[in-house]
């Protein structure tokens, strides 16, 4: 269920564009903020709100990688960049290190639903490689120890 407040925020986005449909990306981003994922119900409601078909919203939700459509992620979604600049500076070792620390493999979530670990393609942080993103925040110039500290600091 989209809250009334959220619907108001989506309406504010709609005002930026000449068509209501243009606000679909913002609407899905907002719908995802609270629970970290987008449900089929959210997508139906967004479609109603914007006056488009549910399949149109589903298309958007599944095309763009940042939407977690029916893909639950933990409280902290760790995304480690494994593109070229980060790989040259040890992204692979970093991933292995995090897997060991959390006891999960790439693509998995810890049993307490706290962490999900995935890879991500270039996030534009190549001069400060290797890097990872946890939810919206960038963590750069990483080493094994730095990662350990960062993960310990998250409740």
């Amino acid at each position: 269920m989209l809250s009334e407040d959220l619907k108001k925020e989506i309406e504010a986005e709609v005002k930026k564009y000449p068509t209501r449909r243009s606000a679909v990306m913002a609407a899905l981003t907002m719908a995802q903020l609270d629970k970290g994922r987008v449900t089929a119900e959210d997508m139906r409601e967004v479609a109603d709100l914007l006056g488009i078909n549910p399949v149109d919203v589903h298309e958007i939700g599944t095309f763009y990688t940042m939407y977690n459509v029916e893909r639950p992620v933990g409280k902290y979604h760790i995304q480690v960049c494994w593109n070229i600049s980060c790989s040259l500076l040890g992204a692979e070792h970093l991933i292995e290190h995090i897997e060991k620390l959390l006891g999960i493999k790439l693509g998995e979530t810890t049993p307490d639903k706290k962490f999900t670990l995935t890879t991500v393609e270039c996030l534009g942080s190549c001069g400060t490689a290797p890097m990872m993103q946890i939810n919206d925040d960038y963590y750069e110039n990483l080493t094994g120890e730095r990662v350990e500290e960062i993960l310990k600091g998250l409740d």
Partner: peptide
């Protein structure tokens, strides 16, 4: 929302209009 292809100018326009 995460799509390299949207850097291509016409894909960017499609995306702005609310399409893939």
């Amino acid at each position: 929302a995460g799509a390299y292809i949207c850097g291509e100018e016409t894909a960017l326009l499609e995306s702005l209009e609310g399409f893939r």
